[in-house]
Nucleic acid binder design. Structure first.
Lengths: 264, 264
DNA sequence: TTCGCTTTATCCGATATACGGATACGCTAT
DNA sequence: ATAGCGTATCCGTATATCGGATAAAGCGAA
């Protein structure tokens, strides 16, 4: 191997290397809990360094190690810190009453999501008790091209942003997931023109979802409201119409509460 | 020659200082979002160092800065990482169906909580839609002596642990919060002998809660199920009895699912 | 059991890296 | 204007961190 490595990133100035690495490790483990060597390999850090990092993180309760298998996963303290994000979240605060009402009104799971990198991240989820929607809770966040929630978020971002996303790897969650950039571009355009997104079976085969964007004072799409329900519901046009109406109303009310004004 | 420090045991051995500090900063901001100087003061770090740390964290999206007020708060990426804790959480997985059922059955908020340091941390919360229970969601975690959930967790920990907790500062959330160690000790004993905890108005004056412990395979109390409802419900003995029954059944089922066996 | 092989733990010197005092800038209030 | 506080940046030095190498511990197979 050539001893010459590096110059991968456009680091101009070396800054807080250890800190950056430790957070990379945390994120890596969040996505991919497992053994130490795998993390080392995945992130290209020398074993000694990684070991030090893991020890430090574990000691603080930021990651947890299963004593038997030596597998690492995210620790309780990270959950504690993470929840503080919601406590300060203005969109969530604005949306909550409307989400409540929507969850009360219908037989579907109601979620509030926002974008984080290449993922649609769920901020809040009102499960319909007794329903089978397994994958839709916290801890499961999907790439933007999967599911109506991600597509809506993507559709309302800048063209440059869309292209950048589409240039990245587009995985399939089910056989029905659309992964051709060309087709996605078309879909995104439609979404933007009709004001909401709808997908069926591209995240889980037995469910489908509808999502509408939420705007803030600056007319920016900052999140989305998403209703998830079982696939069969998507065959009944009347039901669907009703769900859609509630969805749009919920998103609209939330936007208004955030200071958005229609038109512009 | 620098004096050699012992690298053997209980060392103040300098280990990943930057990493540790950055995580302290994150936790501090989680508890106490605000301006940079306050953080510096709160943690006794030199301003220059703190500034570097904050910049690094902000750049990574781990904290967010409000452009106008320069106030820092936890960023979206921390939420993303934190949620991964739940995805791997065995107790939550075991509990979910029972929590679902309980939420369906009654008119109260259903929570699953566990202990983290001096706090009772909420893992999952099924709000009763339309109800007013404001403080009971994520982002609000209470000291162990406040609310039935914390008290139950405390009651089932070791005596040494209890004493250590009681030795720390015991704040009041409402005028009804009990903060005398003596009285708390008595309460804890009662809780342990009756198998559940009940408090009214000590977290919010207009609500009360009932909590029961969850045990794992090793007969350890690893969490608690908590039902929260409005204060008035606590006046009706019959309703209360019914709620209590559901609570105990829910906690019991969860424990069984975790490998706990009655008796021991 | 014994023997390899993979994974985890620890050491240690060189050097790059982060520390923090000092200084400069930019607000807001008076 | 001026004062005062909060924020941003600079730079030399000491020191904390890096990573190769080595040791120990698990794990599976024969």
């Amino acid at each position: 191997m050539a001893p010459r490595k590096q110059n991968t990133q456009s680091d101009k100035a070396p800054a807080l290397k250890g800190v950056r690495r430790s957070l990379q490790v945390l994120e890596y483990i969040a996505l991919n809990p497992g053994r130490a060597t795998d993390v080392a390999e995945g992130l290209n850090v020398s074993w000694a360094t990684l070991h030090r990092t893991l020890s430090e993180l574990e000691q603080g309760g930021f990651i947890a190690r299963d004593a038997d298998s030596n597998r690492y996963s995210i620790g309780p303290r990270m959950w504690f810190i993470g929840t503080a994000y919601l406590a300060e979240h203005k969109m969530l605060e604005a949306a909550r009453p409307y989400l409540d009402a929507a969850a009360e009104a219908g037989d579907y799971t109601v979620q509030l999501v926002e974008r984080s990198g290449r993922l649609a991240v769920t901020l809040y989820s009102y499960q319909t008790a007794g329903e089978v929607i397994t994958k839709s809770t916290y801890g499961y966040h999907f790439p933007l091209h999967c599911g109506s929630k991600g597509q809506v978020l993507l559709a309302y971002s800048t063209p440059a942003d869309i292209e950048e996303f589409l240039a990245g790897p587009l995985e399939s969650l089910t056989p029905e997931t659309v992964t051709q950039p060309k087709q996605l571009r078309k879909t995104l355009k439609e979404i933007k023109s009709q004001g909401y997104a709808q997908t069926v079976g591209d995240v889980q085969q037995f469910t489908g979802s509808l999502s509408a964007p939420v705007f803030d004072r600056a007319q920016q799409a900052v999140g989305a409201v998403c209703f998830i329900t079982k696939r069969s519901a998507f065959r009944d046009a009347e039901t669907l119409e009703e769900i859609l109406e509630t969805l749009l109303r919920t998103a609209h009310s939330t936007s208004l509460a955030l200071g958005w004004r229609p038109g512009a």
